[in-house]
Amino acid sequence: MNRKTTDKLAKTWLWFSAILIILTLLAVLGYIFTMGIGSFSISFLTEMPRDNWRSGGIMPAILGSLIVVGIALLFATPIGVGTAVYLTEFTKEGKITRLIRMSADSLNAVPSIVFGLFGLALFVFYLREYTGGPSLLSAGLTLGFMVLPTIIRTSEVSMRAVPFAERMESYGLGASKLETIWNIVIPGAIPGIATGIILSIGRAVGETAPIIFMVALNPTIPESIFGSGNTLTTQLYYLAMEGISLKVAFGTALTLVLIILILNTIARILKRKFSANLRRS
């Protein structure tokens, strides 16, 4: 075959592969949208489910997701940012830093169902007295463990991006290390840390397997974090698996997708602001 023809054919294939991927994205999102928009409304988001989920809203699930993600962040943010501070400000590259990073990377790769088993064994059984067994607290902590690596990684990157010169200025003015970290490094790293938090929210709100053993299909508002609850993802799983109500299922799916889209947009805006900060340095 002609060399020019081969070249053209290859390029056509490459374009095709990119287009195919865009079409796949549109297919998935489009399908969820068209199937879910029928049930979607403000009342859907704020009402309680009725008639065994065949009608009504999904408010408990939304609340449950919020609580669970909130707990996860409450755990992961201080520990993650603290780890990042330690890695960037208190140690040099060496065995310890590499071990920490390798642990974080490995933790990040652990399959979600394994987190589910771990959470079951640790929080639901071993620590039953403290967590209330299969509860929103257990679910939140499990997810917190899952998103910790993300917070560590994004916080470390954004802290390292704070220019060395700014730290030097602070020291030059007589500030201590802690004052410099608190007043210069962390504030400078906030856009990056915020991005990491947004990414973690996205990940935590979308996970099912880690919490499937701790969260039930509960039609009531959760009374406390030590009690059982319901989240958007687990609800979607049960509705789909048991074939209970396709209407509510797709409405739930659409809600979940919308949350992800909003988070994604916020993250992108933050990322742009973050690199704008980088550029000014």
Binding site: I32, Y237, L261, L263, N264, R268
Partner: peptide, 23 residues
């Protein structure tokens, strides 16, 4: 394309599951 791929990676697995189940 790049943002599209980022979006694909952010879609929750249960959503993929439901899509796959129906489509």
């Amino acid at each position: 394309v790049r943002p599209a791929i980022e979006l694909l990676s952010g879609i929750p697995s249960i959503i993929y599951g439901v899509f796959a189940l129906v489509v």
